[in-house]
Write a protein that binds this DNA or RNA. Structure first.
Lengths: 209, 209, 209, 209
DNA sequence: GATGAATGAGGGTTCATTCAT
DNA sequence: CATGAATGAACCCTCATTCAT
């Protein structure tokens, strides 16, 4: 289950990679502006810098573009998260680091993430499952950091709940931007959410180093 | 800015109301299953129990159906929330009551809410503003309850943040059902979120009556 | 297995019948001139006297037009043959009558028959079977007449062979028109083929009344 | 009017010949399976064992492939017929020999012949004339044998008619295979047709040696 | 000579919307 | 008021053909 779920008639794999990057970049902009359905394949081709014919050398169906976009988003999210945090370090500081990194990421990828959430249902069942799995992986990452960072143990359930809370709070920064970004900056938003969370976990300030 | 944003050629207002209820009911089901774009006007007409010609006596454009759906959703949400809570009562118990009522509501309206979030961007700018305002009203309601329920005062900012957290946690129960409803029942989910919240607010258990 | 193998969104059955007649008429001309593949659906619509949108209210796919054409051809062939001959009369004269009627028919429907033979393979397997069956019915009709008309008995095999010979000789008049219609008129062609056949069957001239 | 109606950019004529043989072989299979129109040039290239670019070094247009196929078919038919019979021998036996050879040939080339008949109209007028001429040559060959083989004289017209009958009866074995090859083997089919023909010609059995 | 990436005209089909009945 | 046949703009996708390497 890889991105070569989407076959191409082009043999040169490096070229396929390059063209698809162009495609994803152009498509994200368009999907953000008008949504998947109102974006035409010709527009995607144009925004990607090639002709409609060429577009279809690299995908089979319009839906494939959406899949490629979703795939690329999670790939980038995963990359950046893995670069930012240490999943195995055992300290609350690491959890805070992870949240900051994640919120920051969600800030940078507001458009992409919004697109993904509004359009996944246009994917085939299979593709949806694939994307959902990536999301689960992401949440699992957060769960691991949470477990490792707490000096005392909490139930699995609670870990799940908190991980999901953090996950959607990150997305919410982009989804509900019209409301939140009027009151908060990314920094104040991040710090206040962290504070609320730690209080909820009853972790003393002093325990943070 | 009311639902008569959507004009009809029919004079008999009671009939208009009745027909539109049929429409919304049929449309929600269809939109839930296939999304707004993949649902045709003919399907909406059929599901509503009348002909395509008749459908267009009660709306101008397909988008109007979506607007009517969104409007109806918020109408029902507002009604039920107002019936369930007392916005002016000053006690933490009232907040807990409100959260329970809201989560329960989100549970009952999973399909509708999901549709709304995935399709609002298909509305015209004006209609989007209208729906967004309804959402703001809803959040404002939560903010009021939060402020009234706390025995000590917290900053406006924090109230906003908490209200938004509660708001999306309610939606999240439906949005992320594939993950959450595997681990929690609506009750365990609700109670754990409440617990986490109150700890975050550092409200002592005993303060609840 | 009827012509309502091809569903229509139009409810008024009489209208469906009428529009499809227009369609078949227009399509046969076009198919004769340029073949099925080189004829566009827009051309069919135009030749039928309605818009492309209307065309698709009466069919599902372009292939349906071809099916309707084939179906209509055999329907007309069958009608005319049944009107011209008496399947149960026991005389050689009746066979001669049948051949004359059939050749005459093939002459009148040269275009249609040619189209059918050149394009059937563009039909789905199911539709092909349906058309093939109609053809078999037609041959069976000839076989019956042959059997009834001979004063002595011949083998089943020979009946089949002769029926098939007559069948393709009729079509050949249209298929090979560039060669045959230079040498023969329909009448001389018919009479010579009849003569050859009867000699082959060793039926004495005098036996014909 | 030769096969070099189809120009090639390649100078090496032997190579052109070789590549075109590969092409025709691959194309016949494809055309038989899916017809000319539903076969893509890429498929032809692949089946021929070279790239699409190379294909176009040996032809100008897709239609050229069809022409080459038709040309090759008649070339092979002519070759084999000339090898099998003696056009100048004056005996009924020779006619019988010719028919047997021709039917046998049509049996071996069922696919090819069918393709040719269903797709010729896709050729340009010029190419059609060229193919038609080859067909006329073939019929003329049969006419010559018929005339030479009869001990008494019959009219030109009748010769034409009989030649055409034989010609289509040979094709019919392939065209109507679903019906005929259920009842006959190639041998029984051939012998019965010969018998019927000779009776039609009122040639006594004993006259055959 | 051979390759295969690029092109874009053009085809089949859908569906929101209208309007005569 | 209700109906449903008619319309055509617009969309997705294919594939013959070219040309730089």
């Amino acid at each position: 289950m890889e991105k070569n779920q989407v076959p191409s008639t082009i043999k040169d794999e490096a070229l396929v990679e390059k063209r698809r990057q162009q495609m994803v970049k152009g498509a994200v902009t368009l999907f953000t502006e008008k949504g998947f359905h109102k974006t035409t394949t010709r527009e995607i081709a144009k925004a990607s810098g090639f002709s409609i014919g060429t577009l279809y050398e690299y995908i089979r169906k319009k839906e494939d573009v959406l899949f490629l976009v979703c795939d690329s988003i999670y790939e980038r999210v995963k990359e950046r998260m893995e670069a930012s945090i240490n999943q195995d370090e055992k300290s609350v500081a690491n959890l805070i680091l992870a949240i900051r990194a994640y919120f920051h990421l969600m800030h940078d990828m507001q458009g992409e993430v919004l697109v993904m959430y509004q359009e996944v249902k246009s994917l085939s069942k299979d593709a949806q499952d694939y994307v959902l799995q990536k999301e689960r992986d992401m949440v699992a990452m957060l769960e691991k950091v949470i477990k490792n960072s707490l000096p005392f143990s909490i139930s699995e359930e609670q870990v799940t709940l908190i991980a999901n809370n953090i996950f959607v709070q990150g997305q919410m920064w982009g989804f509900r931007r019209w409301i939140l970004q009027r009151t908060f900056t990314l920094e104040t938003y991040t710090e206040q959410q962290i504070k609320l969370l730690l209080q909820g976990l009853q972790v003393e300030e002093k325990e943070l180093t």
